[in-house]
Design a protein around this nucleic acid. Structure first.
Length: 500
DNA sequence: CGTGTTCCACATAAGTGGAACACGGTGCGTTATT
């Protein structure tokens, strides 16, 4: 049967979107496949359709619970009942029930952390896995080294499952990210479908200001003028909230803050309201974005610079999915690059912290054996963040006393190397900000791409007219506005006459 | 590094200047460990 017929039969779509057919064919031919598809929409079809043609179960690794729930729901809406999102939303009983009947599910969604648990792996090995899918696979590269180390253990998991046919899906497949994916999953043979990271309909701009207050004023001005919807990115939760309040005070409507420190409920609500158009502007940290399929975002402003160009591309890439003209503006004031440096350093244990911990362990009998039990105390005294602790804990797992010194040297070297990489990435985005030549050409070169075509409204260096992105008062708006004005006058007259 | 908060000296008292200090993002899992 032709793929188009199957597409019609199972999903009631008349035709494939760009790239889908090639990716699906590659999987059906039995190739491990890396797919970078241009937009967020339509990626899930790449595993959903093959699922119906392959014998066995499809395991999907997803980074966010909300993404898992969305995709599971989407499948169920399409009439597929053999779906489970195996995560912490389930009660203990539900989990046990699900595990004992795992063979009933065609689609099994899991986080990398859940997939790492032995009791889960064991059940999965009893099944025939037709396809092992890593959704948002760039997380392997961006989070796997420190923030979510289980992403780097997916290769081991994959091996335990008998190296099943694998599909990695992402929208950020830069050469470096791709290399991390291949390494981490230990793919030895694969096909890849990579499209350009360039988004010609998004104009790029960097504005340098002299100080923080000036940057704030410029932000207020831009938000008042630019046609929404828009996202403003901050590197601080507090700042995202404060600026949302300030903008509201300055007459900006339909605006809200969004960050990882907020209640899950409000996060979902704000995200929904933004997608449905009840909110026009979001002041967000990097927590906001993945899984946001909104077509008409018109601008992305960076109040703080991201920690790497890869993140920058992901964040601005949320604009203009409808193909309409959009703009990305990064506001820079001197010294801004210090915040990313601070964030990067907080992610890895310092030499001092490691030295202290080494002595603490050697001076306390059985300390090594009961490290996890003393987690809180150790973290407090050594001043270790959760992430720093996890890195150390990861290295010292199943280490004996006589291997201690060697292990600490490994941690020190690892931390040194990673910090070096992170600093290098900050230097690269800083360099890009200071640039005096075409920003698009430069960013594409960084990602080993050539841009052949000259684009209109390319970037601030090539020449860019902001007024194109300002709120346009269409004829209807003007008429509506005038009508409103007359109503107000009319109302005033009535009120006045009544008083008299 | 820059911003926000706290606290202290000052000294008609109340509020201010400014020194000192803290803080800064992304998420899964809580089923296993004396």
């Amino acid at each position: 049967m032709k793929l188009e017929n199957l597409l019609q039969q199972h999903f009631n779509y008349p035709s494939f979107r760009k790239g889908q057919r090639e990716v699906i064919s590659s999987i059906l031919e039995g190739n491990h496949t890396i797919a970078m598809l241009p937009t967020g929409t339509g990626k899930s079809l790449c595993y959903q359709l093959p699922a119906y043609m392959l014998t066995g179960h499809v395991v999907i690794v997803s980074p966010l619970l909300s993404l898992m729930q969305d995709q599971a729901e989407q499948l169920m809406m399409n009439g597929e009942k053999r779906v489970i999102a195996f995560n912490s939303f389930l009660t203990l009983e539900e989990k046990q029930q699900a595990l004992s009947q795992l063979y009933k599910y065609k689609f099994i969604f899991l986080s990398p952390e859940m997939l790492h648990a032995n009791y889960v792996i064991q059940r999965l090995t009893e099944l025939q896995i037709a396809l092992f899918v890593i959704d948002e696979a760039h997380c392997i590269s961006q989070w796997g080294y420190d923030f979510r180390p289980d992403y780097h253990k997916l290769g081991a998991v994959r091996e335990k499952l008998g190296n099943p046919l694998t599909l990695a899906l992402t929208a950020t497949a830069t050469p470096e990210v791709k290399e991390d994916i291949i390494q981490s999953l230990s793919l030895d043979n694969w096909k890849e479908f990579i499209y350009s990271v360039d988004r010609p309909n998004i104009s790029l701009s960097v504005e340098a200001v002299d100080s923080f207050p000036e940057k704030t004023e410029r932000l207020i001005e831009l938000v008042n003028k630019l046609e929404g919807p828009g996202i403003i990115y901050f590197s601080s939760k507090k700042m995202s909230e404060q600026m949302a309040s300030l903008l509201r005070e300055r007459g900006v409507q339909d605006i809200a803050a969004y960050h990882g420190g907020m209640e899950q409920e409000s996060r979902i609500l704000i995200q929904q309201q933004f997608i449905q158009g009840q909110l026009n502007i979001i002041c967000a940290t990097s927590a906001f974005g993945m899984g946001i399929n909104k077509e008409n975002i018109r601008y992305i402003i960076h109040f703080h610079m991201p920690l790497q160009l890869e993140s920058y591309l992901q964040e601005i890439g949320r604009a203009g999915r409808d193909g309409q003209k959009s703009v990305a503006i990064l506001l820079y004031s001197p010294g801004d690059e210090q915040l990313p440096y601070q964030l990067a350093e907080g992610e890895l244990p310092s030499d001092d912290q490691l030295t202290w911990l080494y002595h603490w362990i050697t001076e306390n009998p059985h300390a090594l054996k009961y490290m996890s039990a003393n987690e809180l105390e150790i973290k407090r005294i050594a001043g270790l963040s959760d992430i720093q602790w996890r890195i150390i804990d990861n290295f010292l797992h199943s280490v004996t006393e006589d291997q201690l010194e060697e292990s600490f040297n490994l941690i020190k070297n690892f931390s040194k190397d990673r910090l070096q990489v992170k600093r290098q990435k900050i230097k690269e985005i800083y360099r890009w900000i200071q640039l005096t030549e075409c920003r698009r050409k430069n960013i594409l070169n960084y990602f080993k791409e050539d841009n052949k075509i000259k684009i209109e409204d390319c970037c601030d260096i090539c020449g860019l007219d902001y007024t194109k992105y300002y709120v346009s008062r269409t004829r209807e708006d003007v008429i509506e506005g005038e009508r409103g004005f007359h109503w107000k006058e009319h109302l005033a007259e009535i009120l006045l006459s009544e008083r008299i």
